[in-house]
Computed example of a mutant assay.
Amino acid sequence: MDRKDRQILRELQRDGRLSNADLAERVNLSPSPCLRRVRNLERAGVIDRYVAIVNREAAGYPVTALVQVTLARHEREVVEAFEARVRETPQILSCRLLTGSSDYLLEVVMPGIDSYEAFMRDTLHTTPGIATINTSFVYGSIKETVELP
């Protein structure tokens, strides 16, 4: 990747709906070479996909919880069962493997606190192999971006 590819990525991260003509103008290329570069970035897997970023509150999910999970045991079956449960649960937006005292960090969205209680009772508490769960509720955001530097 060269400087021009990085310019293309910066512009597409800011507005993934740019037409090729507008993108080419912003990065000072003619449309044909610009499109060729975008297609190369897609083929190389640098551009993974195009998505819409939805406002959580406007979509009815104003509550965000960060949930640290520690497993009681780390046998393959326990880990696979937990990770399968995570993948099938739409309220879990992300699940990160961690070093340190917790094994996983979940980002969970809910319409309200009562929904979170039901999520805990029906989803996490019924998942075998969990030793501890620690929840922090997000009450503000200083920075939130999907743009890579």
Rank of each mutant, 00 (worst) to 15 (best):
D2V: 03
D2N: 09
K4W: 01
K4C: 02
D5V: 01
D5K: 02
R6Y: 10
R6W: 06
Q7F: 07
I8V: 14
I8Q: 04
L9H: 05
Q13H: 11
Q13I: 09
L18M: 10
N20R: 07
N20T: 14
N20C: 08
A21Y: 12
L23V: 08
L23K: 04
E25I: 05
E25T: 09
R26W: 02
R26P: 01
N28Q: 12
N28I: 00
L29G: 08
P33T: 09
R36Y: 01
R37N: 04
V38P: 03
R39T: 11
L41P: 00
E42F: 01
R43I: 02
A44P: 00
A44I: 04
G45M: 04
I47T: 05
Y50K: 12
Y50V: 07
A52P: 06
I53R: 12
I53N: 07
V54Q: 13
R56L: 15
A58W: 01
A58L: 09
Y61V: 08
P62M: 10
A65I: 00
L66I: 15
T70W: 00
T70R: 09
T70K: 13
L71S: 11
R76V: 14
V78G: 00
V79A: 02
E80W: 08
E80G: 04
E80C: 08
F82I: 00
E83R: 09
A84P: 02
A84T: 14
R87W: 07
E88T: 15
T89S: 07
Q91L: 11
I92V: 15
I92H: 07
L93N: 11
L93I: 09
L97E: 02
G100Y: 00
G100L: 01
S101I: 08
S101A: 12
E107R: 13
V108E: 00
M110Y: 02
M110R: 08
G112N: 15
I113R: 10
S115D: 13
E117N: 15
F119E: 04
R121W: 11
R121M: 14
D122H: 06
T123Q: 15
L124P: 00
L124A: 09
H125V: 03
T126K: 15
T127N: 08
I130E: 03
T132W: 04
T132M: 10
N134T: 13
F137H: 09
Y139I: 11
Y139P: 05
I142A: 15
K143T: 11
E144V: 05
T145I: 07
